[in-house]
């Protein structure tokens, strides 16, 4: 584990401690810092979330943009689901489709699957290598490429920048 991952891990643990404690008293800060270093030394061996993350200015910018795109998609998916639920005829057309992704790293695929689950009308059911099986509430195309174009592309272009 390199020095970069060590520092990142300590910072994340310490940040969580600060949010949980909610104060800046010196004794709380000292105990928290010591615990963060101790936990990182004892338990953090292969932090995949950190080792595969690319820490470059452009990647961090894309991470920031991705966060807002994600929030907007979440809002859109909620309005979409709300409309479907309250419509009297229950306007759904469900099915499980297969899509392909070109992301390689496990963290990238994990984030992609989570993002797909939280965006309009789609739910990841299974991942096998680069195939994702997705429950789609309103199937408009059962073809692999067309479905990938609609579901995966929007996130992939951000995710491939900071997780290859």
């Amino acid at each position: 584990m390199g020095i970069k991952n060590f520092i990142l891990s300590v910072l994340i643990l310490f940040g969580t401690w600060l949010l949980l404690g909610g104060t800046f008293r010196s004794d709380v800060l000292i105990v928290g810092g010591a615990l963060a270093v101790l936990i990182t030394l004892l338990f953090v061996r292969q932090p995949k979330a950190l080792t595969t993350l690319k820490v470059r200015p452009y990647a961090l910018l894309m991470l920031f943009v991705y966060f807002w795109v994600f929030l907007f998609e979440l809002l859109k998916s909620n309005l979409d689901v709300a409309l479907r639920v309250v419509s009297p005829r229950l306007n759904i057309n469900p099915g499980i489709v297969m899509v392909k992704t070109k992301l390689k790293s496990p963290m990238g695929r994990l984030l992609l699957a989570n993002s797909i689950t939280l965006t309009p009308g789609t739910l990841t059911v299974e991942i096998q290598d680069d195939h994702l099986f997705i429950h789609w509430i309103d199937v408009s195309s059962t073809d692999v490429d067309a479905a990938s174009e609609k579901i995966v592309k929007g996130f992939e272009k951000y995710l491939e920048v900071f997780y290859g």
Binding site: L75, V81, I92
Partner: peptide
């Protein structure tokens, strides 16, 4: 109508 569609609403709407 089925468990997968229930999951769709159950996940998205509750998160937001």
């Amino acid at each position: 109508p089925d468990v997968y569609n229930r999951m769709q609403t159950g996940t998205k709407a509750t998160t937001f």
